[in-house]
Computed example of a mutant assay.
Amino acid sequence: MKNKPKILYVDDEKMNITVFQLTFSKVFEVLTADSGAKGLEIFTTEPDIKFVISDMRMPEMDGLEFIRNIKKVRENIPCSILSGHQQCPEILTALDNGEIVDYWLKPFDKEAIEHLVLKYVNNTAGS
């Protein structure tokens, strides 16, 4: 079996992390972090992460702040927000300016996430 694409999922709720891992571990190698700071640490030590998904509302560092920090490390990494809350102006701005490639509401649509992540992973496989 070929190597699964490595993705990073950041969420401050353990149950969300568990559900995400169980849902996507057959298709992706899922690395997880329970805070933006931990996510940044993992991202900087794992150069082969192909896609990043983050919760929006987390203590200390929200999802967009986390994404802005990792883009300082690797500008072209595709990122998305997965949140239990409706879109806010900050998320719409992040979509418009290309900071994030999509936004999903919890409970998430497995097929939609899988399809989009694979599209980006396959498009960046040669880069």
Rank of each mutant, 00 (worst) to 15 (best):
F24C: 10
S83G: 13
T18D: 14
G98A: 14
K26C: 06
E65Q: 08
L82Y: 01
G36F: 01
E41R: 07
M56H: 14
R68W: 01
E29H: 10
K26A: 12
Q87R: 14
H115Q: 07
E41F: 12
K6N: 10
F51N: 09
I70Y: 09
M1D: 11
V19I: 10
V10I: 11
L105P: 07
A37D: 12
T32L: 12
E60R: 05
G39E: 15
T18Q: 05
L105E: 06
T124G: 04
V121P: 08
L82M: 10
E60V: 05
K106C: 13
S80M: 11
I17D: 08
K6T: 15
H115D: 03
I53F: 09
L31A: 03
M61T: 13
E75I: 03
D96R: 13
F66P: 12
F28G: 08
D34E: 15
G39W: 05
I81E: 03
L118F: 00
S83D: 14
W104R: 12
N123V: 00
I100W: 01
R74Q: 14
G39S: 05
R74K: 15
E46F: 13
T44H: 03
N3G: 12
L118R: 01
L8W: 02
E41V: 12
K6G: 07
V121L: 05
Y9S: 07
C88S: 06
V117L: 07
A112V: 11
D55C: 06
S127M: 07
K26W: 02
I91P: 04
K106W: 13
G63D: 11
E13S: 02
K2F: 09
V101K: 09
M1W: 00
Y103W: 09
M61Q: 13
L40P: 00
I70C: 07
R57P: 08
T23V: 02
K2G: 12
S127D: 06
L92I: 15
C79I: 02
F20T: 11
N3D: 13
I100V: 13
V101M: 03
L22I: 01
K2P: 09
V10L: 03
S127Y: 08
M61K: 00
K38N: 11
I49M: 11
I81L: 00
T124I: 08
V73T: 10
A125V: 01
F108P: 09
L31D: 06
E99I: 04
K106V: 06
K26V: 06
M56F: 14
K6W: 04
L64T: 05
R57F: 02
I49S: 12
